[in-house]
Design a protein around this nucleic acid. Structure first.
Lengths: 151, 151
DNA sequence: GTATCTGCAAATTTTTTGCCAGTAG
DNA sequence: CTACTGGCAAAAAATTTGCAGATAC
């Protein structure tokens, strides 16, 4: 866990009037180290290996704190429960329709730009977007014919 | 409620070995008539005006049935609970970051096409995509400066 | 007539909250 | 020190399930 990671966390917490704690640090480190977009439950069981005493409620509270500080994103995919993303740089996600796994994809899969971004669409003032790809992950991709199109 | 709507429902149900019921019809009609992407709870309270005896469990079951027949989509936006979409044609969504409302947007806001669609990206075999715009709905858009970019 | 539904209530699952002791600053 | 936190257990919210009576076909 590089010092810079802790620095980042301390600063962000401080900037939001929050305190630095071991629990928050552990949650943040785990989120920052993975790209699987874990659910709260997954964060809990992983972090517990390191901090056996941590409770699920604390994980939820820590996640909420991190989201509030802009250090993580709370996302939902398809019809699953909430998942957390420790990366705040622009990137998109691909979700396996077979096993439900969520993976990051390089931002450059995205076309030039979404026309109308920063403009008004149907009365909506657009400030951002999120692209979710569906498909089969490497493990599940076994002899399938792809049907392409938005949904 | 046009006869064609009922026809559509009957055919789809039949094709999936499911029976036509008043409850499913009411849920379907409501979904097809709105573009607000209601939660199960919202479907329940609206449909109950028409069928006072319907139960929430039945609404959940009906929604699942409709999704199974391809007559509706189950979606999640941001960090909210599951929402249902009665439209199956290609279109995208805009979500108000202020009030949480979800609105359909014309498909042509979408750029030409997502490069790599139907191809393999990072080992993922892509079969579809979903675009979610963030912004301020007409009601909430009041003197704001837009910061643009993926998130 | 018979397999499939609905409604109800109870069970699960997911997330949030209240409270007191513990700790960061 | 003092306010903010974490852990625990209980609460609330969201969704699913079992079952007996009702209903579509």
């Amino acid at each position: 866990m590089p010092k810079t990671t802790e620095q980042t966390l301390r600063r962000a917490l401080e900037a939001n009037g929050q305190r630095f704690t071991e629990q928050r640090a552990a949650v943040f480190r785990f989120l920052a180290s993975t790209d699987v977009h874990p659910t709260a439950e997954q964060v809990f069981s992983t972090v517990r290996e390191e901090l056996p005493g941590i409770s699920l409620a604390t994980v939820y509270k820590s996640l909420e704190t991190l989201v509030g500080c802009g250090l993580a994103l709370k996302l939902t995919f398809g019809d699953d429960s909430a998942r957390y993303d420790g990366r705040t740089e622009p990137h998109h996600h691909a979700r396996c329709v077979s096993c439900g796994a969520v993976q990051d994809v390089m931002d450059d899969i995205e076309p030039p730009e979404v026309e109308g971004l920063g403009q008004t669409v149907d009365g909506f003032q657009i400030t951002g977007y999120r692209l979710e790809l569906s498909g089969y992950c490497p493990q599940c991709a076994r002899g399938r014919k792809a049907a392409v199109g938005p949904r």
